[in-house]
Amino acid sequence: MLKINDLHASVDDKEILRGINLTVNAGEVHAIMGPNGSGKSTLASVIAGKEEFEVTKGSVELDGEDLEDDAPEERAHKGIFLSFQYPVEIPGVSVTNFMKTAINESRKARGLEDMPANEMLKLIREKSELLEIDRKFLSRSLNEGFSGGEKKRNEIFQMAMLEPKLAILDETDSGLDIDALRIVANGVNKLKSKDNAVIVITHYQRLLEHIVPDFVHVLHNGKIVKSGGKELAHELEEKGYDWLKQEQAV
């Protein structure tokens, strides 16, 4: 589904990604771990098409199609979803209205009519139950005054609504208490299918106890330095990242 080939990316002439290779197939869950500043969030942003980053070499392909010329919204229309570490507050636009706009823009891009209002309401109800979100929450302004946990839950709610092919969860576990973590992980697990894939970006192993990865990759200095199964996450939890850095140095 997703194929990243020798990806190099810079911001302000500073190279952050230095040759990433990664293949994610449908039905898989991949975890990307690594110390602060290793390029995890940059990788997520580059896949989602953030213009601030310049791809200097290599490519990102979705279903065999190079995404290079696609704007972020076009990538979204093709099925890429990024759950933000710091979701943005949009005063005056309710969660419901925001979702209506997002869904109908995606439908428009696919040549479909707007989703009928009753269908939309049904979908909103169904997905909000999945994330244990109450109705009052949906009429609040998007992310405005939301707690950290509410923001993250709302991100996964949006993911549930948009049903992406590839979901990238960027530090979704940060700022979550254990209950919120369980709800968020539960939501992600229920949305998982043989037709979609998830990339979980995290600093800690905590979330991976709930969303169990098929593959774990360690990012360091803009490169994947080690890949393995879920046991690699445990190893990292025990040993930290220093041993990897040393291994690299050698």
Binding site: S45, A48, G49, K50, E51, E52, A71, P72, E73, R75, A76, H77, I80, F81, L82, F84, Y86, P87, V88, I90, P91, G92, V93, F98, T101, A102, I103, E105, S106, A109, Q158, L162
Partner: peptide, 30 residues
């Protein structure tokens, strides 16, 4: 306009022009 906010909206499938308008609307809303 805040470029990060713009990217957030675009990443949800909202085209740039509409995303800018939505941000401006949000800016003036209160």
């Amino acid at each position: 306009l805040d470029e990060d906010a713009l990217f957030y909206l675009q990443s949800r499938g909202i085209p740039e022009k509409e995303a800018r308008a939505l941000l401006m609307y949000a800016f003036a809303n209160n």
